[in-house]
Design a protein around this nucleic acid. Structure first.
Lengths: 223, 223
DNA sequence: GGTTGACTATTTGTATACAAACGGATAAAT
DNA sequence: ATTTATCCGTTTGTATACAAATAGTCAACC
């Protein structure tokens, strides 16, 4: 496993918490590498905006409430466009992949009696598969590239952890509607459905942030 | 000047041509640096998609006609959204910056009797200022971040060089309409005007590519 | 007691040295 | 003559060494 993947994974899984600084020597020892490849990996993550420069070195970026609002707006725009494009450009293979991802999503929700850490993480992953399949069907590689960078932020922020299983079941229904729209080549219906879908997620997350029961996640600030 | 800026500038100005490979030792000597900081700069550019890995080392990315089509679609989406958001969130200061940028644009077109290399480059720069001012007024830093990466591609591709001065004058008119819409807080009008504006550029570029008089730019392929 | 200053230790930034991989050229064989 | 195999040169990838900067500590002075 290379340094970039390792560090990114660590940030996504929360093993490296926001605000935490990335010690090069430490990471190097952990990966049995010298500092050189570590530094290069960090430079990449910096270009993606996952880590930010500190006075000395870099630290895991801490996303504010405002960041989350902006990111969700952007993601809504990009993914609803992707859905509409998918309805135009999708092939039969895309449909198969889409159906399969959706089926997996359905199963992983049904198999989950209550939402613990592990099951949420599994659902996140399957959900991602569905969304990625749509983006792939849109046949715009640059759109895909930028969406992949945008989507990482809510994951790092742990947005998904604030869903309840009613919302999850509702998501499944919307997924099915989106699938049908793409299958039937109805760009506008696909776009609107996806727009609602992500905006719903946005609202849910922002509501929780306003409740500020988890606002401690945001309290400290990197110097 | 640091390595990242230097190499990026070189790519934008065409001093490093598409497909050309980036020799670390060469760049290091040119910048009076060792290979280490050069490599880090290259890693950043790689993360942004301006350079791509070759079998050995990296080379300046060659954008295909399909890339340009995708990029312009994406840019249309992002910037027309930015315009609509700007119409909502713009402050008085934003309007001042916008008016100023537009005035500069008007002057630099009027001062240009015919389109040589130098004047085109100046117009590109001023045009960029106007577009950036709109994005800034949208008050979404993440949107801004991604647009900045998307916009670079047409510049590297030299899309602007295929404009004639009638089209430039027409652009100015549209800029004024967009400005008015943002000033009057009309998001939808701003969005549509921007959409038309960029799509016009897209069509112009793609038409030229189809004419294939400049298709030699695309012919060789990096191994 | 708190604040300021200097010293030290740790960590980053850069340069260089070394190992490995790739490409090109030359030569031999079919 | 064309193709294949081996060798060598060049360039990248990684490790290490060294220089510079920052933060933390301890002490002295107000």
């Amino acid at each position: 496993m290379d340094a970039y993947e390792f560090i990114k994974e660590a940030i996504i899984l929360g093993k490296l918490e926001p605000g935490m600084r990335l010690g090069e020597e430490t990471l190097a020892k952990e990966l049995n590498l010298s500092r050189t490849p570590i530094r290069e990996a960090i430079k990449q993550l910096e270009a993606e905006g996952l880590v930010i420069p500190l006075k000395r070195g870099v630290g895991v970026r801490r996303f504010t409430k405002e960041d989350i609002r902006e990111i969700y707006d952007l993601r809504t725009l990009l993914e609803s466009y992707a859905a509409s494009q998918a309805a135009i450009h999708r092939t039969e293979d895309d449909l198969i992949a889409l159906a399969k991802a959706n089926e997996l999503y359905e199963h992983s929700i049904e198999d989950t009696s209550h939402l613990d850490m592990k099951s949420v993480r599994r659902i996140v992953k399957v959900n991602q598969t569905f969304h990625e399949a749509i983006v792939a069907a849109s046949k715009n590689s640059h759109l895909r590239f930028h969406i992949s960078k945008v989507v990482v932020v809510p994951i790092v922020f742990r947005s998904f952890y604030w869903y309840n299983d009613f919302q999850l079941k509702q998501s499944l229904e919307v997924h099915k509607i989106i699938f049908e729209a793409i299958k039937n080549r109805e760009p506008e219906r696909a776009r609107i459905a996806m727009h609602e879908h992500i905006f719903q997620g946005r609202d849910n997350v922002l509501r929780h942030l306003d409740d500020s029961e988890i606002s401690h996640l945001l309290k400290e600030e990197v110097k």
